[in-house]
């Protein structure tokens, strides 16, 4: 019995000494000591506190000027602030939001909202389709591939103001390139930018924006195409798929991720098209019916009536719109474990 007990004791001792061993030979004693130190000591030594000088200033500045401003904007949208004196924070109501829904006509919120959605959807869709077609063409081992890629991507590096001014000339009914080209086939001249039909104006704007951003869609799709192994193309060929079928059934379904990320970025750009319209129409109020939410917001807030609180309410809607675009994307990325 004794021998068993002593054997057990030896056994336990040897296990303990094994546990104490550090195979990497490191000195673990310091860490052990600080762990057993006071609560404050442990708090000051924590990663979050020690790294605070690096993240805290940016965190506070962003918190104040971005998220703080958003919250303040929401608060103002609940008041009747008209831009003179201090806003009155006494009585909050949803009057501004109710007004939005009531207004009708070509200068109304509803009109601007519909325009925004149409612009967003049309611009994004056309950009994606055009970008995909160009990406497929560029991907087919053409000569001067890099040159083409740069040429297609270049418009994106220009600012909205530059492209707007350029397209103003292009669209000019007084010898602009577009009208000259149309003149060759006997159409026009068409006044695109000041057309009485707001749909023509919107179409012209979408076309110009597509010109600027389809290069981006192309680059995203090109990266997606490059990520598909050559064997998939070859397997599809051996399987007997025609070129169109190969892209339709094998290649394009694999570009889902590229499509989602490109559309999110394009939609956000579409929402920000304010500068483009502003540059296109100068200081004038955009011609009848072509308001999108940002231009509408600026006009009601800083125009003749100076309805700051109402403008804030429009801004809240715009923010909600942007949020509703980005949030599902972030969530799906999170689900896929990419965040």
């Amino acid at each position: 019995m004794d021998s068993v007990r002593s054997w057990l004791r030896r056994r336990i001792d040897s296990v303990r000494s094994e546990q104490r061993l550090r195979t990497d030979g490191g000195t673990a004693s310091d860490a052990v000591q600080s762990e057993t130190g006071t609560g404050l000591r442990r708090y000051l030594d924590s990663d979050a506190v020690e790294s605070a000088p690096f993240w805290l200033p940016a965190f506070l500045l962003v918190g104040l000027f971005v998220y703080g401003a958003i919250v303040w904007n929401v608060v103002i949208s609940l008041t009747d602030y008209e831009g003179l004196g201090d806003p009155e924070y006494g009585s909050f109501d949803l009057e501004n939001y109710r007004l939005m829904l009531q207004e009708t006509g070509s200068y109304s919120f509803t009109n601007a909202f519909v325009n925004t959605i149409v612009l967003l959807v049309a611009f994004t869709l056309v950009c994606l389709v055009f970008g995909l077609v160009v990406a497929i063409l560029v991907d087919r081992d053409i000569r001067f591939e890099n040159t083409f890629r740069t040429i297609y991507l270049l418009p994106m590096s220009l600012s909205f103001v530059v492209t707007a001014k350029m397209w103003l000339w292009m669209y000019s009914s007084n010898g602009g390139f577009v009208n000259r080209a149309l003149g060759v086939v006997g159409i026009g001249p068409v006044n695109f930018i000041r057309n009485p039909d707001p749909n023509v104006q919107l179409a012209a704007i979408v076309f110009a924006l597509v010109w600027q951003f389809s290069g981006y869609a192309m680059v995203v799709y090109l990266a997606g195409l490059r990520a598909i192994p050559d064997e998939h193309f070859e397997a599809a060929r051996v399987d007997g798929a025609s070129l169109v079928k190969m892209y339709w059934r094998v290649v394009i379904p694999q570009l889902r991720t590229a499509t989602v990320s490109a559309s999110v970025v394009l939609m956000v750009f579409g929402l920000k098209a304010f500068d483009f319209l502003r540059a296109l129409y100068g200081n004038d109020t955009p011609a009848v019916g072509t308001d999108i939410l940002p231009t509408y917001m600026v006009r009601v807030a800083f125009g003749d009536a100076s309805r700051i609180a109402y403008g804030s309410a429009v801004a809240v809607v715009l923010f909600a719109l942007a949020f509703s675009i980005v949030l599902p994307y972030l969530y799906s990325e999170y689900r896929r474990g990419a965040l």
């Binding site: 599809a236 051996v238 007997g240 094998v250």
Partner: peptide
């Protein structure tokens, strides 16, 4: 054309869609 040769190919990477 590849499809008309009556051959089937197994790729190193399998090339499953």
């Amino acid at each position: 054309k590849p499809a008309e040769r009556n051959t089937a190919m197994v790729f190193q990477s399998y090339a499953l869609y």
